[in-house]
Design a protein around this nucleic acid. Structure first.
Length: 981
RNA sequence: GCCGGAGUGAUGAAAUUGGCAAACAUGCACGACUCAAAAUCGUGUGCUGAAAAGCUUGUGGGUUCAAGUCCCACCUCCGGCACCA
């Protein structure tokens, strides 16, 4: 997706200029409307289509079905802006196209209207949400209708309709009965402004996604759906879906699968054990302390044993108060307190290590406790530095070359060798010695092997002298050990080198001559720090040593060779994770970041959760025959802020008989979140009026799955995960036929305001489709929005460019005068070829959702028609068919004018004649030494000798070949002839 | 930090098994029509250059007869996640 630079746009289109342009009418004259009267034509056909119900869909076994779905809108009080219909126009085009290709197309529309935005709007305008939602839906629907969209409105649904939410409640009860809905008292995200609990998915950067208020942690009773049971299935299911890889990645990220080990650290002198989760069990020997999250249950349990009880209690109280956002803020200094008086035992080496409580460990992830390995983890390292905790290194880096000349060769054995890397600094300047290799494009520091009996330092001094000639290096710093596996080009063996890295400074510039043999290998150059870091890249090992010297690496977090790890020392870290885990009594486990779905809202405007609390029977489901549990009509529906929903105050509604024991019971007063209704709506469209089931099984089997789903990418981690979760559940209950709801997904790129910012009332850059439709016509709006650019890309609105779309339709209109109904008229072959090329391009581009290039091709065709004196009705009618999905009104009018009785939108899609597209001759570019110097006109099946002969006869070619001889000829028939002279 | 995406004229953009960069559209300039303006139509429009020609797809390198497209390194921007052990 192309990024959006709104500063750039603002520079070009300052507000005054935009306003002036709009007033001017952006270069479009009203007089022209007389020629093509969009208002009359669009109104006429919209009325007729609706009267004839040409888009009404029924199940039909003789035809192949195609289910095209839009993400249904949330009818806000502000109505649609021009950005909203972009996706709807695309699905409209696509579904018309599929219908013309003979598919039985289901393309429904509805409205999602429960939840915070509608309720907040109602509170603001002091109307009951039931009333305002109805008004908003009416307005939205009207706005969609004037664009000429092909929805089957007989299937319209609204999530707030009791006949709809009856089934939302019913599905919830199925989840409840299977134990997938449970009551929890855990602290959850609480929005203090909207006064409701929120799901993880509703929190963005620690703020409420709706209102931007800082989210607090608040313990309260709530209903939670066990989506985590489906984590693995949701992850696996992605594999088979034809979705953009980016959206799949967002979901994978959100689910956050992580495979690691769970290892117990016994608390000395108690029966307790601290279970930690780690992905780096290989570093277990380096665990020098363990850390518990402040909310970890064991902290409280150990409290009596502690000598600093008060301090701990204070720390925990403080961290509870802190908002999540502050606690996890970037760069925040870590804090923690040691649990004094208890020790944990590292199961790897039975060492006693301290136990800390610190808020950098999250209670909600893993086991809520970690083993800290400061030598090989950034966070632990920082914490250890601050509190002066011991650091033990257990891994030495190992770098394996996997690409390039020196990549390890699998067929050869490894030869081990002790070696050195020496970074040598100039005696005066801030420069370092680098060897520039002659036969390969490498740069390295001084390196070499260690001979028998040499110390690393001696070996380094010798290498410095041999390779650079400098006589007086002085060892300044030991940079530690690292390892490298690579192919030694000169020695032709795989080398497993164990490097001792050192930093030297030359005491003076005294130098002896370097042996010729060394000179041939490489050249000594002096480079500054910046040059080393910028102008060439060191390989993994060399750059590691450099970074150690620059103190850029405080702690090594990569893989390597184990040291200080008992029997495991010397082995490679990737391979021993499982062995170390098992030998320490741990087990391999899988953890997910995905949290269960907090499903209660303490607000009025949502589906009531259909449960009854009974003192005797506990929580009881409302019997199916009593569904829906209707949302009671109330005067006051402001949120209470107490953690109870406003429904709790309606005693008449709350107090009911327990369905089981007939004793006194109380209704659940929490309502469902906004995402509930949209988690199954595509199923209801298949059978919207069913009173006996949420969908008829046969109808569901016919229409499922949704073949193509189009909507905003912002729903990747909410709606699309919830919907897949519910669908998978229904599938397992054998209530639906397919395991996944949406086979193919495409996301819409936003339309930004003319100033490059998001279209919003706040910026005053909102453009309403109504005014555009009125002034330029729905067909112009449709074509413009599809022509703007790639469909999935964010693009700024530009009324100026819209004129081009209108002009295009007018040009189509004006071509009519050239159309001959005389059947004997023969079109020029070129026009006929272009027509078939156009059929091909438009067909393929619509299928690929590349509407911009499809329209471009239609424009090319129209421009060519303008150049013709006359053209046949036959050709023009085929063109109308191609135009129909894009400009349904204009093409229907033209279609009718030429005597067609039935709708163009029910006509069959044209096919192209492939034989016509095989051109007799093509223009072939002739390149000489990589430059195009001439072009020749030949048949694409000409053989090379003839083509070459023809090319050489061209004066241009002769001029460039000159006296030289042609050394090489590359001939790609129909594409290019390339000569090397 | 991690994951994903993008960078091409004045502007929106086009071009993918590597084969003539800038299709189509907007804008702009000039011309026709007009008393005039608008609209419409026509011509031109990447940069340098008088021309010949050269240069040009974020930067630097590489592979190739040929690179926007493939490889390596880097820069910038956008989206998402982020103390996730």
């Amino acid at each position: 997706m192309k990024s959006y630079d709104h500063k750039k746009i603002e520079r070009k289109w300052p507000q005054e200029k935009l306003t002036a342009r709009r007033q001017k009418g952006a270069g479009f004259s009203r007089r022209k409307q007389a020629l093509y009267d969009h208002i009359r034509i669009e109104r006429k056909w919209q009325t007729k289509w609706s009267k004839d119900k040409i888009y009404k869909t029924k199940e039909d076994d003789r035809k192949e079905k195609f289910y095209m779905l839009d993400m249904f809108p949330y009818p806000s009080g502000e109505g649609l802006h021009v950005g909203h219909p972009k996706g709807y126009i695309a699905t409209d085009i696509y579904s018309r196209f599929k219908r013309m290709q003979g598919k039985n197309v289901l393309h429904p529309m509805g409205f999602d209207a429960f939840g915070l935005p509608a309720e907040n709007y109602a509170l603001k305008t002091k109307t009951n949400p039931e009333v305002s939602v109805k008004t908003n839906i009416k307005r939205f629907k009207k706005q969609l209708e004037i664009i000429g969209l092909d929805y089957d409105w007989t299937r319209e649904i609204s999530t707030t309709d009791p006949s709809y939410y009856k089934w939302t409640q019913w599905i919830f009860l199925q989840l409840f009965k299977k134990g997938l809905a449970y009551e929890s008292y855990e602290p959850i995200n609480w929005c203090p402004v909207d006064k409701t609990g929120l799901a993880n998915e509703d929190v963005e950067n620690g703020r409420c996604e709706r209102c931007g208020a800082l989210v607090e942690k608040k313990p309260m009773r709530q209903w939670v759906l066990k989506i985590t049971d489906y984590a693995e299935k949701l992850l696996e299911g992605l594999e088979k879906l034809d979705w953009p890889e980016s959206i799949k990645d967002l979901q994978r990220n959100w689910i956050g699968k992580s495979e690691g080990a769970q290892i117990g650290f016994k608390v000395k002198g108690t029966g307790d054990s601290i279970e930690v989760f780690t992905t780096r069990a290989d570093t277990l020997f380096g665990a020098t302390y363990v850390v518990l999250a402040p909310e970890h249950a064991l902290v409280e349990k150990l409290l009596p044993r502690l000598t600093n009880k008060e301090e701990i209690v204070r720390y925990i109280e403080r961290s509870k108060k802190e908002a999540e956002i502050d606690r996890t803020a970037e760069g925040k200094e870590k804090t923690g307190v040691e649990l004094k008086g208890v020790m944990a035992i590292n199961p790897a080496n039975n060492e006693e290590i301290p136990i800390w409580v610190a808020d950098y460990v999250l209670g909600s992830y893993g086991t809520g406790a970690i083993m800290a390995v400061p030598a090989h983890d950034e966070r632990d390292w920082k914490f250890a530095q601050k509190y002066n905790l011991p650091v033990r290194s257990v891994i030495e880096p190992c770098f394996t070359q996997i690409s390039g000349l020196d990549a390890v060769r699998k067929d050869l054995p490894m030869v081990e060798r002790e070696a050195i890397i020496a970074i040598v600094k100039h005696w005066k300047e801030e420069k370092y010695i680098v060897l520039r290799w002659k036969k390969v494009t490498w740069h390295t520091f001084v390196t070499g092997g260690i001979e028998e009996g040499q110390t690393p330092e001696q070996a380094a001094i010798m290498e410095i002298r041999e390779e650079t000639g400098y006589l007086h290096p002085m060892l300044v710093q030991d940079l530690g050990k690292s390892h490298g596996k690579f192919y030694h080009v000169q020695k032709q063996v795989n080398r497993f080198a164990h490097f001792h890295s050192m930093y030297f400074k030359l005491q003076d510039g005294e130098r002896e001559e370097v042996l010729l043999e060394e000179k041939e290998k490489h050249e000594v150059i002096w480079l500054s720090k910046a040059e080393i870091e910028k102008h060439f890249s060191l390989d993994g090992g060399q750059s590691y040593v450099w970074k150690i010297l620059q103190k850029e690496i405080a702690t090594y977090t990569g893989e390597g060779i184990l040291i200080n790890s008992g029997n495991f020392s010397g082995t490679s870290s990737e391979k021993v994770k499982k062995k170390i885990t098992e030998s320490s009594g741990g087990k391999m486990v899988t953890k997910y970041k995905l949290r269960d779905w907090v499903f209660s809202r303490q607000r009025y405007w949502g589906e009531p959760i259909p449960l009854i609390h009974c003192e005797k029977c506990g929580v009881v489901a409302v019997p199916e025959k009593d569904l829906p549990v209707k949302l009671p009509k109330v005067k006051k529906y402001e949120p209470t802020g107490t953690g109870e929903s406003p429904l709790a105050h309606i005693s008449k509604w709350v107090n009911v008989k327990c369905p089981k024991c007939k004793g006194p019971g109380k209704r659940e007063t929490n309502t469902m979140p906004q995402w509930a209704g949209s988690s199954w709506y595509w199923l209801r469209y298949m059978d919207p009026d069913n009173k006996k089931a949420f969908v008829d099984k046969k109808k569901e089997a016919y229409w499922s799955p949704v073949d193509f789903y189009v909507g905003g990418a912002e729903h990747a981690t909410r709606h699309l995960i919830y919907a897949r979760f519910w669908h998978k559940f229904l599938y397992e209950q054998k209530l639906v036929a397919k395991p996944e709801p949406f086979m193919k997904l495409q996301h819409v790129g936003l339309i930004m305001g003319e100033d490059g910012r998001k279209m919003s009332k706040r910026w005053g850059n909102v453009i309403s489709p109504d005014t555009i439709v009125e002034k330029f016509g729905a067909d112009s709006l449709r074509i413009y929005e599809m022509f703007m650019g790639p469909f999935d890309q964010a693009i700024a609105w530009n009324t100026n460019n819209l004129v081009g779309a209108r002009r295009f339709i007018e040009r189509v209109w004006s071509i009519q005068r050239k159309v001959l109904t005389d059947k004997k008229f023969m079109d020029a072959t070129a026009l006929r070829v272009l027509l078939h090329k156009t059929i091909k391009k438009v067909t393929e581009d619509i299928a690929a959702f590349k509407f911009n290039t499809a329209i471009s091709q239609l424009m090319i065709f129209v421009n060519e028609c303008e150049r013709q004196e006359q053209l046949s009705l036959e050709i023009f009618k085929i063109f109308i068919l191609l135009l129909a999905p894009f400009a349904p009104h204009a093409s229907e009018e033209l279609w009718a004018q030429y005597g067609e009785k039935s709708s163009v939108h029910r006509a069959p899609w044209p096919l192209y004649d492939a034989t016509l597209l095989l051109a007799a001759t093509v223009t072939l570019a002739v390149q000489i030494n990589g430059r195009v110097r001439a072009s020749i006109s030949i048949s694409p099946d000409t053989a090379q000798p003839e083509a070459l002969a023809l090319a050489l006869s061209q004066p241009e070619v002769q001029r460039w070949v000159g006296g030289g001889s042609v050394r090489k000829v590359i001939y790609v028939p129909g594409k290019i002839l390339s000569l090397v002279v």
